[in-house]
Write a protein that binds this DNA or RNA. Structure first.
Lengths: 202, 202, 202, 202
DNA sequence: ACTTACGGGACTACCCGTTCGT
DNA sequence: ACGAACGGGTAGTCCCGTAAGT
């Protein structure tokens, strides 16, 4: 049973190196050789654990990015009485707590989406699924707020959810491109204002 | 004198084909051979007019994308008395008027930004410059509004401008990835609400 | 004692899958991984029973192809009083009774011979040995016929035997390549005419 | 105009090296790197003149093997009054005149046919076309003989043609595999007997 | 101004074989 | 006896860029 653990360790080592390489260079520009050079492994190990490069991307989506979205954006909304306040808090904390290199390298999910969704239908669908789960969590929270009277009934939860995700994704793009935190701060402040002004009941 | 025009025509033919290929496949995945195959030209023509692939991208940025931003987002704000109304109108019209394939292939500027800004400093700076001019136009309009009393003095023009651009860019990302217009509509509606609720003076 | 049988069963399972894969794809193009995928086994099993890919080919030759030649071409000539008639009958029956896919995939022995004999001396020798036993059976039968007067003494049994085998092998090549049974029928008819016209005593 | 000739020279250099490599190692086992190492050229030159490995094979078929068949087997039958005699002569001369290494490496056309026809439909069709032109030349000659009374009307020209080609191809296989000229001599003698005994009119 | 020929390198995707464990 | 993990190497493809020619 030692072997199984060791193998899983190896798999994760490759996955981690792949995350780094793809985050830094992009999916297409990422080189499997570089990924392996970052580990102490060789081609054999890689192609034992992953059938090809696309499978690596799928694994990153499923085992890494989905978890990140879950931990940072979905889980914290469980059992939230006042979704507007929760979302404001969540946005503020996530932006403030984001490490510099995360800001400068951009959002891996967003990067992957932009680069692959046009050419790889399966990857696109996979990414879409993750984005959808993100939006759904926001929308569900807002719907709950509409029921308990903390959220204005005039807004469409689905639209607001999609808007917030879009704004956050766009801000990460701008931040990466301007090598500056400012777009994210601007986006955070604006979203907080927006939520307070538009989504609260009269 | 005719020769000069013919040559310029050739240059533009390549530029056009490059725009299409890069928009569809992405910068790295775009192949110079494919670009040329889409024209009736060969390597010699390309490398006569452009020093290398990066220069092609720079030309696309300078001669195509900068113009698009100008025509669609900056020029329409000249001589605008009520910037909030102008922006709301602009956003609504741009989203409604965008053709389907533009929606599905995403924003070329945004695609380029995501793919190249991490690895090519010059391209990043060039793209940033275009984004900045976009944001500046929005911010200037808002500042003018603050002076003539049509815009709330409580908001930061720079932050709001950055926020709007970020939201639009993010929405285009989501739309491309979900193969649907919905994220853009949601974003448009929400931005319009936001502008009305937050940026108007009391 | 049961273990031994089970192991032998495993060996045969691999051998069978290898025969199929090599027949369809050729020796070089055949993949050990594909062969194993066609069974429910893995590398460990293969390399337990066979030292390497070449050994697999040797096993196919020794345990499968030699047997086929024996059953279809050598055994039927035992105790044959009139070898010309026997050969004519044998050729006609073998061609008529050959299933379509056998026709279209060609003769495995011939395929192996063409592909490996130039690069692997041991395989070449092994294949040659099988061909030789085939020719020898024909030649011996003809010699016996010469003794009992049913075969013309003017012909060289060795040459005729070699000729028949060559014609049959060539016809299978042509049939495979033309995806048609016709070359084999033409060859069968012609060989029968040849035997009747040339090998019968005056 | 110098450049065009130089380029054609380059193309032929690659083609020649490819013929050698594929003849010696087989199609699948042939390495493009080895082919190029045999010339003073690099990948760029190869992929400028040929789109891929299969195209190389097609070029060998079209520009080399078709010509060989033409020169050695088809052209000599033009203006032949007595096809049986012509064929007998042709077969004898071709076998006698064949250099040793040609015998030992086998017939490139036959090798290609055996190795590729099962997996590449286009190559199969191309090879078939060449074999067909070969058979047709034999059959046409025999038909002419039937008209002028030098060939028995009892035989089917198409079947006999196919048979001769099959026998010759098979003999080259056996010769290659046995590293001996004997199978070809046996085949030549037997075909000559066959033609005399079966195809001559009574 | 533009074409054709070519250099030279990189990438992914295999493949065969070994080793360790069970 | 067999499974699973991994080593190590090579193959074909394609790509960007150069340079000589016209």
């Amino acid at each position: 049973m030692k072997k199984k653990e060791q193998a899983e360790q190896t798999r994760l080592k490759i996955l981690h190196a792949a995350i780094g390489e793809i985050h830094h260079k992009g999916y297409k520009a990422a080189s499997l050789d570089h990924i392996l050079a970052a580990t102490d492994l060789t081609k054999g190990a890689l192609y034992h654990h992953f059938s090809d490069k696309r499978e690596l991307a799928h694994a990153i989506l499923e085992e890494y990015l989905r978890m990140l979205v879950d931990v940072y954006w979905i889980k914290p909304l469980d059992d939230c009485a006042d979704p507007v306040a929760c979302l404001q808090d969540l946005i503020a904390r996530n932006i403030a707590g984001m490490p510099d290199d995360e800001v400068f390298y951009g959002c891996l999910l967003n990067n992957l989406a932009n680069e692959t969704s046009g050419t790889d239908e399966e990857l696109r669908a996979h990414i879409d699924q993750i984005y959808k789960s993100w939006e759904t969590a926001f929308a569900d929270a807002l719907r709950k707020g509409q029921k308990n009277g903390t959220v204005s009934k005039a807004i469409s939860p689905d639209e607001v959810a999609s808007f917030i995700v879009a704004a956050l994704a766009g801000a990460r793009s701008l931040a990466k491109n301007s090598k500056s935190r400012e777009p994210m701060i601007a986006c955070g402040n604006s979203l907080i204002s927006y939520l307070g002004a538009v989504c609260k009941p009269l």
